[in-house]
Design a protein around this nucleic acid. Structure first.
Lengths: 221, 221
DNA sequence: AGGCTAATGACAGCCACTGACACTTGACAA
DNA sequence: TTGTCAAGTGTCAGTGGCTGTCATTAGCCT
């Protein structure tokens, strides 16, 4: 970090305004619903004009994803740090879990973990937000695929395996998120448990006969 | 089909208006872009009021997905018709391919295949539409998971495998669609080829070591 | 202190979408 | 056939997300 030299009043003010907008937005979204809160309300809560809100965020949704974005960036870093001897899916699995374990450090400067969990559930249960979430995930997947390809010394566009592996992983993560938000335990531990449980089912789910207890998943993650 | 008795003038008129709106919308979307065409333009092209458009479609996007919806319904039918001895992923794979093979019969009453392909590409390349597409896909996945579970005599909520299998399949299909739209061959054959090629990579992509040419995908689809 | 520029507010306007109400037009029974 | 009813449509007014423009304010830097 070479941004240690204090950023100057102007920058600090901007950061504070932005964080305040995010906080106000998430608080309003999670308490009265996404569609039922207007941008004017958010702006008023922070005492800025509506126009200013749109100078910080391209749209109402963007505010809803501001914190999630931080965690995704962190996740990518964690994947990059994984030792090269791990298989792609093993590296991805460990990185996600580690990301959840360090969630608080990542976001505490903006909002408490509890509000973030409520936001996450809101996203999963609000059609308009879910749609955006899935598209954002698709973008993340592309970055992941390139990372994995680089890791394995492959060409993403020549070899389908990086994208396929990421698609499989990501598909399972989606089911996880959906199942978590549909349940009633909104804790980080609950997510962790679901992730490991579902990832362990990838091998078995691909075998021909679901009634045999064979070890087909033996050499898959 | 017990809808053989001619539906009456009122119904037929409604259907014609709806089809005309879809055609006009897709034609405009694909020629001048989704965001740049207004609902007023679509309505005017069919000579109805803007209000009427919104009586047929909940939103501008819904018109963009009207045809895709028909193909998805058909796909579900095909999955249901698959013989029970096929493994889940095998059944899904054959159903998708068959769906593409019979595309024209499914949609010809509304638009030509060529316009549909252009629409599909538009969806993949327009952020707002891609987001909705992914959400709609998620809904489809849920239906698929229930179908597969029923097929295998399992409880969807107790056994994770149906959802995981569908997630894997669906994730790969997504990559396929994305790769197809990024290429320059917008034919049905091109999609078919991509689908088979990518599905064949699921097994290999999950193995530990990507440098060995082992047969790890042997008993997976 | 004073000039420069980034950040903001105020205002006007576009477009997607909705509710309310009046009018037109198939459907169907007398 | 005609009259009645309900479904379908047009018009209008209004809300909310979002953008361009321009004048004003407020950090920054010499």
């Amino acid at each position: 970090m070479d941004t240690l030299p204090r950023p100057g009043l102007r920058e600090r003010k901007k950061q504070r305004t932005r964080d305040a907008l995010v906080r106000a937005a998430l608080e309003l979204f999670t308490s009265k619903g996404y569609e039922r809160t207007t941008v004017d309300e958010i702006a008023e809560a922070v005492d800025v004009s509506q126009r200013t809100f749109f100078r910080y965020f391209a749209g109402k949704e963007e505010a809803a994803f501001a914190v999630l974005e931080m965690t995704e960036a962190h996740f990518l870093d964690l994947v990059r740090e994984r030792p090269p001897h791990e298989s792609p899916l093993e590296a991805l699995r460990r990185a996600v879990l580690e990301n959840w374990d360090t969630l608080n450090e990542t976001i505490e400067s903006v909002i408490p973990v509890e509000l973030h969990m409520r936001t996450f559930q809101l996203i999963e249960s609000t059609p308009a937000l879910l749609a955006v979430h899935l598209r954002r995930t698709a973008v993340l997947e592309e970055k992941l695929a390139r990372l994995i390809a680089e890791r394995e010394g492959l060409d993403v566009d020549a070899d389908p395996r990086p994208r396929v592996a990421v698609a499989v992983f990501s598909g399972v993560m989606r089911v996880t998120g959906q199942r978590w938000s549909a349940g009633d335990d909104l804790s980080v531990e609950a997510i962790r448990a679901l992730i490991t449980a579902y990832l362990d089912q990838v091998g078995p789910a691909l075998t021909k006969d679901w009634n045999t207890q064979d070890e087909a998943g033996g050499d898959t993650v």
